[in-house]
Design a protein around this nucleic acid. Sequence first.
DNA 1: GTTAGCACTCAATTAATTGGAGTGCTAATA
DNA 2: TATTAGCACTCCAATTAATTGAGTGCTAAC
Lengths: 354, 354
Amino acid sequence: MENKNFELDERKEKILDAIIRNYLETGEPVGSRTISKYTDLNLSSATIRNEMADLEELGYIIQPHTSAGRIPSDKGYRFYVDHLMQEKDREVTEMKEFVIEKTEKMEQVLKQVAKLLANNTNYATLVSAPAYNTNKIKFIQLSHVDDEHILAVIVMNNNMVKNQMIDVESSLDNETLLKLNLLLNSALNGLSIQEINLGTIAKLKEQAGSHSTIVGEVLDALANALNENEDLQIYTSGATNILKYPELSGSESATNLLSAFEEKEELLSLVTESLADQESETGIQVYIGNEAPIQTMKDCSVVTATYDLGEGVKGTIGIVGPKRMDYENVMDNLKNLKSQLDGIFTKPRKDEKS
Amino acid sequence: MENKNFELDERKEKILDAIIRNYLETGEPVGSRTISKYTDLNLSSATIRNEMADLEELGYIIQPHTSAGRIPSDKGYRFYVDHLMQEKDREVTEMKEFVIEKTEKMEQVLKQVAKLLANNTNYATLVSAPAYNTNKIKFIQLSHVDDEHILAVIVMNNNMVKNQMIDVESSLDNETLLKLNLLLNSALNGLSIQEINLGTIAKLKEQAGSHSTIVGEVLDALANALNENEDLQIYTSGATNILKYPELSGSESATNLLSAFEEKEELLSLVTESLADQESETGIQVYIGNEAPIQTMKDCSVVTATYDLGEGVKGTIGIVGPKRMDYENVMDNLKNLKSQLDGIFTKPRKDEKS
DNA sequence: GTTAGCACTCAATTAATTGGAGTGCTAATA
DNA sequence: TATTAGCACTCCAATTAATTGAGTGCTAAC
């Protein structure tokens, strides 16, 4: 009655909690007798039955068929995640196995994170590379490769490097190349991709004079190189874990899920959605069943965390599994990895041997 | 009797052929009555039965259980592939859908090839990036990025580009950098990775004088960049197709296969093996059942083709599916793609619009 | 408000039944 | 001697029937 929430009194909450916990463990519909013993409420199964009937009416649990036990509904899971689940706030340092090897290559790290998470949770995981669209150009260089090709090397703020080969009609002499280099650098250095607008471009081409076509190509290449790579940098692991859960592997949705993880294109919308959805203070989002951003995952639960490298550069870590998911463990893991990733690539790393 | 092969007379061959073709189509064990009608031999089912008994004794076909039809054994498939199958030698040009969009990026092309093949065959496919270890260095450039970093850009013969960021203690002035560039290029241009031996290195370091540590780092970076990428460049597609075939998806081997395609590490040995196994004049290898290079695929058939970019640079295209595989179609597709890939990256490409 | 008791329901397991495709063998046929 | 028709036999696969048991809802007593 005096509980903060109107629908459920404390006893109902406890019973719901017990039902869900039990179901998470066993995966079997749970009956009144089980609860009667499982809890410390000292109530008979008959009483539990009455309460369960109420809980079902309120939509928190479901009976797969008459004369079966109850399983949590989406609403039930939601309530569990929001109110019942106790988040274990272990300190990060406790978990030795989680220490990420600091490698030069971001790619390696992210792959490793995906794998680590999959191993720890037994669900399917994905990690998106950070979206560097606010990142700035640090340095551009055109080099003569052979008579028909110029190589454009672009270095970004975070020391990410992009290459683009450019075909040219006729060979350029060194002097022109040097001039173009100078021109491009003075015009573009310090700008982010968004900041390169039509004005900048027009001005640049004007200054380039007879070589404006080359400049145009460089700009195309720039946009090209940066977009293309951002588009689809998602690392996944443990997709086959999906098959471990009968509630998923049975239906054809399992195949769709596996395909999604193989093609990765569909996962992109999951990432963007989750990046947009950051209301919670923890930076962790939970999608249950139909709440999931993409239809393919309507029979799953999806938990995502957004890691933040500072300056608006963000990426996503995600876990996809059955609704009957060990939310506590999953969120714990995510929180942990998130805190380790936050800032890892921008932080100075002086402790390396080489 | 006067047949080139000792075990089977012509009639038995025809019957075996009919059995296998029928089984490839239907996936069901095939009985004597079916064959009696299917072929133009005009034999009664009883006669066929006798012949089938012989074929079984010789090991070409198998009876799943008494009172079932026969299915091909591994030996049967092998005979089919080697002697019975007719390879349709369509000209390449016929197949419009196969035209590969010529993109700048090798990666894109290979991904596309994998996908194309998976779509055309409904099996799982993999494409390995070519091993460029015999490829030569075309051009090296060190650039000043900031006070603590130098960027090494290495362009190979085939216009492949590698980057490696190098940490330096203290900033180098432009002149030194220019000198180093000159030195590195004159020493290393035209060499393949194998050709850079200790002598070259010692000499190079000597010439570099006080900057020999930098040179060392560049060489490390070089080896590093080139090895690392060669290690594990395998593109896959259609792995989930495996689930379409009951004989695979039933057992747990399906999960193992899917994992192998997800992790990709295991596939590496498949690639190396198939590169080693090139006896056939067509450049295509067929592994049936236990012949497969890796244990995970013992219940499958694996067909690989080796494409050749010239100068010893080679890669593999592979298909993994059930033993009951449409070998003709698969080999046709592989031959086709192989011929399109052969030399594609080294050939001059003048027909592009830009 | 709680509980014991009882009749009822329904999935899941196991057992029994049947149908049919296919074989192997034998004896007749060309 | 090779081929074929005929028949008894085998065994999987699919169907139906019987059994079990966990769990419920309801009622009446505490």
